[in-house]
Every structure is written in C-alpha cells, then in structure tokens.
C-alpha cells in the first residue's frame, strides 16, 4: 500500500519526492538536512508544520527532527522577518569594519541583533565566517545571496532594494 501523507502540502511533497529521486541516498534519513532546507523555503522557518511535514516524510519523530534542525544555524527556529540580514563579523570581516556595519544596522532598523522590525520586514543577526574573507565585510540575505565589500553606503542602498 502506498504511503499517504496527511501533513505535507502537495507542492511540498512534490519537492520532497524530487529530492528523493535526485539524491539516490542509500538511507532515507540522510535526506533530513536537505528536506529541512526545502521545508524552510516553503514555510519561511522551521515551524511546527515544517517539522511535522519533514517528520512524516522521513518517518522520524517530530522531536528528533526539531532536535536536528536546532543544531544548524541556518535553520530559523523562530519566525523571522521577510529579509534576514546576516552580517559576518569574524576576523577578516572585523578587520574591514564589519562591527560598524552591525552597529549601523541596529541604529537604522531600530532593533538589536537577533531582533525583527515591528513591521516584520527585517531581522538582523551576526554570523560566523561565510568563507569570503578576501572580499569582506560580507553580508548574506536569507541564507542565500552574498553581498561583498560592504560599506555603510552600500548597506543603505541594499536595504532600499529589499522590498
């Protein structure tokens, strides 16, 4: 009998199935991190619904899935703003002025690190080495695109470009 998935929205299930086909993983549990990435993209964060969907697809307990997700910094365990601004402030970026960029963002957005603006548009976090040390300071948006050689001016125009 084919498995039926009651907690996985159809569109998400299609992506999970595509992952299973493409990944050719010898054991299904190996799909946990990739599936969490897909679920986070669908739900915006690792919500209870996201945990339930991944747990059901991989036949794991929700506690196990949440325990794994919380190990990795790229998984948002709270609902973040629409644009998560991730500023690297490790050694090389620090030398190029990353701390001033974080301080500027805190002032400009009126939030502290780890916070979200009241309109839900921006969240701000500091991250550790993004592996672009020769092109610092580096800012990443939503775990995806890198913005390199950042300055206060470039941060301001980046913020304006984010809808």
């Amino acid at each position: 009998m084919a498995l039926t998935f009651s907690k996985i929205p159809g569109e998400l299930l299609e992506k999970f199935n595509a992952l299973e086909e493409k990944g050719k993983y010898p054991k299904r549990k190996s799909m946990l991190v990739p599936a969490l990435h897909i679920a986070q993209e669908h739900f915006g964060w690792i919500s209870d619904e996201a945990v339930a969907a991944v747990a059901e697809f991989l036949e794991l307990s929700p506690n196990y899935v949440k325990g794994d997700a919380s190990f990795y910094t790229m998984f948002f365990m709270d609902k973040p703003g629409k644009h998560v601004i991730q500023v690297c402030h490790n050694v090389s970026c620090y030398l190029e002025g990353a701390e001033d960029i974080v301080a500027h963002l805190e002032r400009k957005l009126g939030i502290k690190c780890g916070g979200t603006t009241p309109d839900g548009k921006f969240s701000l976090v500091t991250v550790e080495c993004l592996g672009a040390c020769g092109r610092g300071p580096v800012v990443q948006i939503n775990n995806r695109e890198y913005h390199e050689y950042m300055t206060i001016e470039k941060i301001d125009s980046l913020l304006e470009s984010l809808e």
């Binding site: 910094t73 948002f76 701390e99 001033d100 805190e106 502290k112 690190c113 780890g114 969240s123």
Partner: peptide
C-alpha cells in the same frame, strides 16, 4: 562593545 552578537534566529543565545 558595539553590540551584543546573536548568531542565529530562535536558537538559544
């Protein structure tokens, strides 16, 4: 310090 760092959304500080 210029700020208190927080390294991830919703994780324990």
């Amino acid at each position: 310090p210029k700020y208190e760092p927080v390294g991830a959304i919703g994780h324990h500080k």
